[in-house]
Write a protein that binds this DNA or RNA. Structure first.
Ligand code: SF4
Ligand code: SF4
Lengths: 162, 162
DNA sequence: CTAAATAGGGATATCCATTGTCCGTAATAG
DNA sequence: CTATTACGGACAATGGATATCCCTATTTAG
């Protein structure tokens, strides 16, 4: 059970978009070149972000993507769920219904204990992702990256932004 | 990103094994019939449990599986990791290495901030699973299931146990 | 106005993990 | 000895993830 690589791509792209000057847009082409990713396929991930309403887009030359909300209001969970979907990682196939001892008219009112535990763990995972915003990530990166690399990256983005 | 169904199967089988009288064994065949699952494939899941040391096995007629430890010492995480593996759900492909601004001699000492957040969420998920034991599950089930069904199931298992 | 660049989306091919089946081998109980 | 079992290797079927290609509508640059 491994998250799709599109999740990593989307997170990186959002991290870059978070540093974009107000009102500017960055194209799929620029994002793909920056990360060394296949442009067409990365486009699918960005479309997921767009459909989820996390980013805003414009067409034409100098078009592309920008964040739809402030980095303070965009969490890791938003991005992960946009790409990976909101389905819980544990699916219950109701195999308890096959229990040969069970009377035919028996009807289960509630999800069983096993499913509840698994869903609880799933929720803990989501809660952790919900607790970190893009703004938090930006602060950490600014602290940890060598200042020159950080500045060069900002310049590169600004240069390619439409 | 969805857990394999073998995880659900393994959890259900362990729940049954937890109710097995001391020293008795329950075969793949019985477990498969009880849950309405393909015997050969369920066998793979049980082999995973065996390789992880969670269950003890014997061969021959009246052979099968029993728990290797007390239900108090067996957590959901043990079972999930035995079947699903211990690999973290977020894999880092080091796409930051493709950043065109990065000097060629640059060497990343630590995993980046994005990966750390994702791995933190993964750990929260595991921690939650680690906090529930098979004994906890047994107590919940005994409380929630209709007493007659509970008793019938115990009898069925006892009848099929070698 | 025209041409180039862009997001979006459908169709398709490839790869790979999951799911499932089959069979041979060694061990063990009766 | 015989039936039953766990175990493991080989293999097929399925489906989701990955990746590419191409067409369309829209918008900006010139
Ligand atoms: S996880 Fe619970 S609800 Fe789902 S099949 Fe198993 S017993 Fe039933
Ligand atoms: S998640 Fe972090 S370590 Fe992994 S590729 Fe992205 S930046 Fe690099």
């Amino acid at each position: 059970m491994i998250l799709k690589s599109q999740v990593e791509w989307a997170l990186h792209c959002c991290a870059i978009l978070a540093g974009l000057p107000e009102g500017r847009y960055l194209s799929t082409k620029a994002l793909a070149e920056f990360h060394g990713l296949p442009k067409e396929y990365l486009s699918k991930a960005l479309q997921s972000l767009s459909q989820a309403g996390l980013v805003h887009t414009t067409l034409g030359p100098s078009g592309g993507y920008r964040l739809a909300r402030s980095p303070e209001e965009l969490t890791f969970l938003d991005i992960v769920e946009a790409v990976e979907g909101k389905t819980r990682t544990f699916v219950c196939n109701e195999i308890r219904a096959n229990n040969p001892c069970r009377p035919k008219d028996h009807c289960d009112s509630a999800p069983c204990a096993i499913a509840r535990v698994m869903w609880g763990a799933d929720e803990a995972w989501r809660q952790k992702l919900r607790s970190v915003t893009l703004a938090d990530l930006g602060r950490t990166l600014a602290q940890e990256l060598p200042p020159s690399l950080w500045q060069d990256t900002i310049d590169w983005v600004e240069d390619r932004a439409g």
